[in-house]
Every structure is written in structure tokens, then in C-alpha cells.
Computed example of a mutant assay.
Amino acid sequence: MSAETDTLPQARIVKASPRRSGQSVVRGVLLPWLSPVAILFLWWGVAATGLVGPKALPSPVEVVAAGWELTLNGRLPQALVASLARVLAGTIIGVALGLVAGLLAGYYRAGQIVVDKPLQMLRAVPFNALVPLFIVAFGIGEWMKVSLIAVGVLVPIYLNTFAGVRNVDSKLVEVGLVYRVPRRLIAYRILFLGALPSILTGLRFSLAIAWIALVTSETVNANAGIGYILAQAQRFVRTDQVFLCIVIYALLGILTDYLVRLLEARLLAWRKTYDGR
């Protein structure tokens, strides 16, 4: 073997040690849950010391017992199925409408003129103000509840899609037009994919708003759902069930946010961003 060959750097395979692997698991999985666990212990400590009466602040044990009671009588599983079905239907409709509106307003000036101002005004309208109008328009059935959730999802998706499209480099669109790329391919391959990070951020906001809209919608002529249990618990002063519904909403919000994060990790694997140190 020649001297030049001997001086070449030797390739080395570096394997992740079990210690480093364990540290990554702790940082990625366990550490984010430290603050919720701390809040849980603080809640338990305040309830145990009696600083706040049990009617105002039930202990975590009482909340778990309330959940077990509602599970045994079948109300909680039925409520979860009903609420998840409403959120899923409303989210699908709202995301579809928001994407179409955002792409049209972002790509065409005429689309912006037609769509932007009405949706900007809708953004400022609270859900409670829309409930009477939706009751008149759609009645008090399921369609009213799904429509209210869809409107809540629509606005953040539209805003983030529109902003994402307008932040795409205009030179990319000009190159596509020069090479006579069909407009539908420009809309998908350049504008939609370029706006995808912003769209996924809007989806996270939209899912959070969807749960808020669900609470509002389920207070109107509902006989099932987490919001219905919350309203009944408030009526009969069952604070343990009220806290149970709050905890369920929080957990469902974390779950849906986690699912969107998984989607981001898959669709945006090419993007390298700062993740903190």
C-alpha cells in the first residue's frame, strides 16, 4: 500500500451509546411532562391542605372517581364519541374551505379582493355571537354544531395559508410561468408546498379553537358530549365533573397537537430548523 493511501483518514462508524440514547429519551419524552406533573402535585397539595374548599377545588382523586363513575354508567364514552365526531367533521370542512380560500386569495388578486375582508371580519366575531344566527340558519341539530366548529377552524387555516402563499419567493412562480407550467401545478408544487409549514402551524391553532367551539356548540340542545356533561355538572354543582371535563379537554388538545407535530415531522423532514439548546 502506498504512503498516500496510508495517510487517508479512516472511516469510523459512531454508534449511539446507551447512555446518550437514554438521555435523548429523557429530554424528548419525560422532561416536557415535568411541569404538568408539578401542577398536578400542586393541585393535590392545595386540595389536601384544605386551603380551598372541596366544592371549589376537588382533589385529583375525586376527579378520577368522577371519571370512573361516568365511565361505568356509559355517559363518558358516549360523550367522547359524540364530541370527537363533531370535531372531526367540523375540522375536515373547515380545513378544506380554509385551504381553498387561502390558495385563491394568495394566488389571485381578485381572490384576495373577494375573500380576504369577509374572513378578516369573521375573525373578529366571537363564537357566542354566531350561535343565534346558526340556530336560525341550521336549526338546533348536529349540523349547527359542526358548522360552528368549521367556522372556528376555517379562519386560522385561511390566514396561515394566505400568509404562507404570499411568503413564497415570487421568482419561483415566475420561473414556472416562463416554462409554461400549468397553473394547477404552480398552485400545488410551488405555492401549496411552499406554504405547507405555515399551513401546519395554522392547523395546530385551528384544532385548539375547534375544542373551544365544541364547548360553545354543545351547550345548545345537546344530549351527549363533553360540553353537555360540563353544562349538567355546572347545573347540579358537581365541581368534580367540571374539573374532569376541563382535564379531558386539556388532554384531547395535547393529543391533537401531538398528532399535528408527527405530521409536521413527516411532511417537513427536509426542513432543518433551530430546536433549542
Rank of each mutant, 00 (worst) to 15 (best):
G253L: 01
L104Q: 03
F205K: 04
R261T: 06
I135Y: 12
L207C: 04
L130M: 06
L51T: 09
L196H: 11
G22E: 00
G74T: 05
V95K: 00
F162N: 09
L104G: 02
P58A: 15
V37T: 10
T49K: 09
L172G: 05
G28M: 09
F243G: 04
F192A: 07
A65I: 07
L51Q: 05
R166D: 12
P77R: 03
P156L: 03
L72K: 06
F134Y: 10
I229H: 02
W211C: 05
A11G: 14
D275G: 14
G176A: 12
I212L: 15
A124L: 13
L207N: 01
L72Y: 04
V14W: 04
L267S: 06
A222P: 02
T91V: 01
F134P: 03
V114E: 04
M1R: 13
G74I: 11
N73L: 03
Y108H: 13
T71N: 12
D240A: 03
F41H: 04
G74V: 10
L200E: 12
A208P: 08
A105H: 05
V14R: 02
A11Q: 11
A213N: 11
L196M: 14
G225P: 10
A101C: 06
W43Y: 07
N223D: 15
I190C: 13
R20V: 05
Y108R: 10
V136W: 12
I199M: 11
G194A: 11
A150R: 01
V175D: 04
G53V: 01
R75F: 09
L255K: 00
R271M: 05
V181G: 06
P60W: 09
Q120C: 07
V146D: 00
L207Q: 01
A187L: 15
A66Y: 00
A16E: 11
P118Y: 07
I157W: 01
E174I: 08
S198T: 07
V26L: 15
V178P: 05
L255F: 06
G74H: 13
V37D: 04
R277K: 11
E62W: 05
V173C: 09
A124V: 09
L230M: 13
I13Q: 14
I186L: 14
Q78Y: 01
L30Y: 13
L268W: 02
F134L: 10
T71K: 02
Q112T: 10
S2T: 08
W143F: 15
A137F: 15
R204D: 11
L72P: 04
G176V: 06
Q234C: 03
L172D: 05
G139P: 13
R266C: 03
A110R: 09
G50C: 11
E69S: 15
P32T: 03
G227E: 08
L42W: 14
F205P: 01
I186A: 08
K55M: 10
E218M: 12
R238P: 06
P60S: 00
V81A: 07
V26H: 03
D240V: 01
I254L: 06
S147D: 01
A222E: 04
G176F: 08
Q234W: 10
N221S: 15
A233V: 07
I248W: 01
G106F: 10
G164Q: 07
N221Q: 13
S35H: 08
T219K: 15
I226W: 04
P156I: 01
R238W: 06
L76G: 00
I135C: 09
